[in-house]
Design a protein around this nucleic acid. Structure first.
Lengths: 208, 208
DNA sequence: CTATTTGTTGGTGGATCACTCAAGAAAGGA
DNA sequence: TCCTTTCTTGAGTGATCCACCAACAAATAG
């Protein structure tokens, strides 16, 4: 393994950054997560990150850019990616959705991070002038639907799901339940309570 | 029917109000409903109501008071009260919850008013300084849970619900589904789609 | 009529908002 | 060593926010 080095030796010029960019992104994520986009001010961000506004704007651009980067980072984190992982790893569609609901019931109320799903929490209450952010998050949330539907359709073709089942309707149902779990977690529901909710929700799975 | 008159003839002194208070409240409701509490400014309210800030403060007090009155008014409106009506009018618990879900699926995406439920929409993205409003709305949402549970427990004692069913868990499940329906309506789901979601959700009702 | 009560008008104060800029500081390259 | 590049700092931009007056207008009561 010679040749091109792993880190392409950027040979950075200029004054190095005094704060950890990834660490700052994590702190910003936590703030946006619990307060939403509009509810988080630049002042609160600079205070939490321990830097001045100039440094923040130099490192992340404006508020919208920072928020989009936060959402991307969230999507790559375990909390934000557990659905995709379950859909990939579980051999059956039922197994995948059961795992998604059960994991959501435990992850969403986990006190080690703000309650619920970031893309659901930070979405609402955006004024028309920030409709760009609202549309961005709505697209992200609605993006789950075709993914769910495709998995269910595949299960139907494989004979796992009865022929009279409606993959699109099932996908919409699970999306609604997941958003409901997130909301309930924000309202203080416990993992135990949400797990019971998840089990009940799974009872809607079409019988063979 | 003599005696005390229906309107107690207030014999109002002073300059009469030039705008309709109930009408103004309706307009304010619509604004808060689609923009949330923080996202609605006094300026937007005065512009929509066609009055000046002084009149608004004289008639409703400060922003918080106006918002609370809006929520109370919403709770008395058909859109805000349909759950209570269904619980009262339907003879069976299943009939009540089926009606609640089916009506929510049609009411929430109705284009004649902002999408979703006001208490769910206007709740998020409140900064800590307005935690009073957030707590007020959360209490309102969580208030549905004991009501649901009581109705289910009564059904269980009446033999409508199997003895091994869990009224508390079922109540939490329906609350989560309802919040999910509201969210999906805000994301653009149609009444037809939400109705299919509601039907699937009803499949979780415990078999006898 | 006068006095009283109440709504309306136009404006202000203090705070906060997202954001910017000039100057200083810390690194590498020559 | 000096230059270039990049980041940090601290002050400050105009705009907007909510909250709240004081003065004026319009009604009733006596």
């Amino acid at each position: 393994m010679v040749g091109m080095s792993e880190t392409p030796a950027p040979a950075k010029r200029g004054r190095p950054r005094t704060f950890d960019r990834a660490e700052a992104l994590t702190a910003a994520t936590r703030l946006f997560w619990e307060r939403g986009y509009e509810g988080t001010s630049i002042g609160e961000l600079t205070e939490a990150l321990g830097i001045r506004p100039g440094s923040l704007y130099a490192a992340f651009g404006d508020k919208k850019s920072l928020f989009k980067e936060v959402v991307e980072c969230y999507g790559r984190s375990p909390v934000g990616a557990f659905m995709g992982v379950a859909l990939e790893e579980e051999p059956t569609a039922y197994g995948a959705f059961a795992r998604i609901l059960r994991e959501a019931a435990v992850i969403y109320p986990d006190p080690s991070h703000p309650a619920g799903c970031l893309t659901i929490s930070a979405a609402t209450n955006v004024t028309p002038q920030d409709s760009e952010v609202a549309a961005f998050l709505r697209t992200l949330r609605n993006g789950n639907l075709p993914t769910f539907e495709a998995r269910l359709r595949r299960a139907q073709q494989a004979g796992e799901l009865p022929a009279d089942a409606d993959p699109k309707a099932l996908a919409a149902y699970f999306a609604a339940v997941i958003q409901g779990l997130s909301q309930r977690a924000q309202d203080g529901a416990t993992a135990a309570e949400l797990t019971r909710t998840a089990e009940l929700a799974l009872a809607a799975w079409p019988a063979a």
